[in-house]
Design a protein around this nucleic acid. Sequence first.
DNA 1: CGGGAAACGGAAGGTGTCTCCGTTTTCACG
DNA 2: CGTGAAAACGGAGACACCTTCCGTTTCCCG
Lengths: 195, 195
Amino acid sequence: MTTSTSPAAKPLRADARRNRETVVRAARELFAEQGVDAPMDEVARRAGVGAGTLYRHFPDRGALVLAVVQDDWQVVLDAEVRALEGDGDPVDDLDRWLTALAFHQASMRGLVAAIVDCATKGCRDDPLVRHCATTMEAAARLLARAQATGRLRADLTAPEVLDLVNGVVLASDRHSDQLSQVRRLLPIVLAGLRG
Amino acid sequence: MTTSTSPAAKPLRADARRNRETVVRAARELFAEQGVDAPMDEVARRAGVGAGTLYRHFPDRGALVLAVVQDDWQVVLDAEVRALEGDGDPVDDLDRWLTALAFHQASMRGLVAAIVDCATKGCRDDPLVRHCATTMEAAARLLARAQATGRLRADLTAPEVLDLVNGVVLASDRHSDQLSQVRRLLPIVLAGLRG
DNA sequence: CGGGAAACGGAAGGTGTCTCCGTTTTCACG
DNA sequence: CGTGAAAACGGAGACACCTTCCGTTTCCCG
């Protein structure tokens, strides 16, 4: 369904489930307004729960951020599968997918930064780190397919390409309209990938 | 109002000048070790002064960061003048200068991020903001000169180009070896500038 | 129901930023 | 030399945010 983090999802008590959802809703709202750096206390306050409750459900900011963006992120990941199955031009597919990823990452101020620094701290079994790994694998597949056409630099690696996309989003983060800045900068980087 | 860049720098008292220098030295050392996000208190402690003294000399982290990197930054700015006066290939000159700028920005972890967010908050007469403006003008001149050759996308603006460079450095910031990551990613972006 | 487990909330402890103000140091001038 | 006003000092403390801990409340199964 919506949020199935682990294969064996233990059944939460009714009040717990309700609170969890309330918190995610409040966080989504607040993050959209103020960016994902908004105070955790404020999330709790807005959700009408105590700080303890917040932290029991989401041990750190990364976990909360993931819960908030997971569904949208998954949509991007699914798009990769469709691209692989389709018969579109591999280079165009890569461009389109990276663009979709960048737009997703630019949907909330501070999102990429939060993801990156949670990913650098987090251990390998952290859900967010796993999502990053999955994204990396998707990128690697699309990249390999695009490189096979010979129209892309052959020496590029998936981490490099994703770093470049991250960079564009990071650099756009402070602009009042992140999205249009990404729309402007990303094509330049994508052109660079062709060497 | 004590800025080394102001035209009429009023003479500091002997102890004040001594402390200021001690603080900058301590900050340079600490920032090199831990990145520019190192606690201000720790800078003060290491310099052997009170927090009050630190903040009197440098009202915010941005001011301190500027004091620490100013000289190196100036070297980059001076390089632009030499490039303009020389008869090198304009596109190569631009590449080289942007590379020098990026390397400078990657010299300390967190430097670009600190500069960017101080620049977004700071008022127009903030010394750091002025340095950014000067850098922008330098970039604009080199860019215009390079565009005149017709070998660069004609629609690029200086803010966009600098944002792209910033992005590369930002994306490299978390890597253990920022410099080699910049060395790897930047040429890709520079290639993109030629469209 | 009733009791044990699950979940709750908010107070308290930790860290970092920045300010305020009583005290100390400098230095220009008599 | 003094000496006193202005400049500079330092560190305590107010504030903001993060996170943990634990006494209390709520759920739900038998």
